[in-house]
């Protein structure tokens, strides 16, 4: 049997589509964790990145934080927090957030900081307040790059959220981990396919989001 056959029989089995271990349940769980982690990471990283970028200050500190965040192994963090705190969402959320903050933080800061200074100067000279300059002049121009950072973070979260299953949480990781344990390769391949599919859908969502929110006057350059 090859991979395609595994995948085919996994999805063809109607029993897979029902119950607490069914595809819809696991998918929803997975999407739920991912969205929650992305929202928390964005709430932390966006304001910091926007403000530091606007003030054109703190770039070095931010990149140090980001590098440190990237250096932490998600799985190690998960195990450590599980040992400390036991069951709960905390051991799952923290590694995902730590994973997602650096790309959002760094791209947001860079995107805002590299906005052409002359419209900003013009805006200030016309008497725009600083928050207006940030949200009405800098952000719309930096938006494609910022969305790019969020997209990277989202895709990383979606694929890494599989580890939640290690600490007995649900999500698509369940299929992979249980499958490996039970030597049920149909399940492993099915789970992996679903994760990959979800990552693709995430890309699509961000593509649509940028179509909707980025002004046609803003041409992507960097």
């Amino acid at each position: 049997m090859n991979v395609l056959d595994f995948a085919h029989s996994f999805f063809a089995d109607s029993a897979r589509w029902h119950g607490y271990d069914g595809i819809p349940t696991r998918l929803l769980e997975h999407v739920g964790y991912s969205l929650e982690a992305l929202a928390i990471a964005a709430l932390i990283a966006l304001p910091v990145g926007l403000i530091a970028g606007h003030l054109r200050r703190g770039g070095n500190a931010l990149s140090m934080v980001a590098t440190a965040g990237r250096a932490l192994p998600s799985f190690g963090l998960l195990v450590l927090l599980f040992i400390w705190f036991g069951f709960g969402t905390l051991p799952v959320m923290v590694p995902l957030v730590v994973l997602a903050v650096p790309p959002i933080l760094v791209t947001t800061y860079e995107a805002i900081q590299t906005v052409d200074p002359s419209p900003v100067d013009a805006a200030r000279g016309m008497g725009m307040t600083e928050p207006r300059i940030l949200f009405q002049v800098e952000l719309p121009v930096a938006l494609p790059v910022i969305l790019g950072g969020l997209r990277t973070a989202a895709v990383q979260i979606v694929s890494t959220a599989t580890i939640a299953a290690y600490v007995s949480f649900g999500g698509l990781g369940r299929y992979i981990i249980d499958g490996l344990y039970q030597k049920d390769y149909e399940k492993v391949v099915g789970g992996a396919t679903l994760v990959a599919g979800l990552a693709l859908v995430t890309l699509l969502v961000f593509w649509a989001l940028s179509k909707l929110t980025v002004s046609p006057g803003v041409r992507r350059s960097g």
Binding site: S118, P119, D121, A122, R124, M126, P140, G217, V218
Partner: peptide, 17 residues
């Protein structure tokens, strides 16, 4: 500032507007 028009070298237009 709102009572003084301000024009700069590269126009400094808002590209998204």
């Amino acid at each position: 500032r709102r009572s003084m028009g301000y024009v700069i070298q590269n126009a400094g237009l808002f590209q998204h507007r």
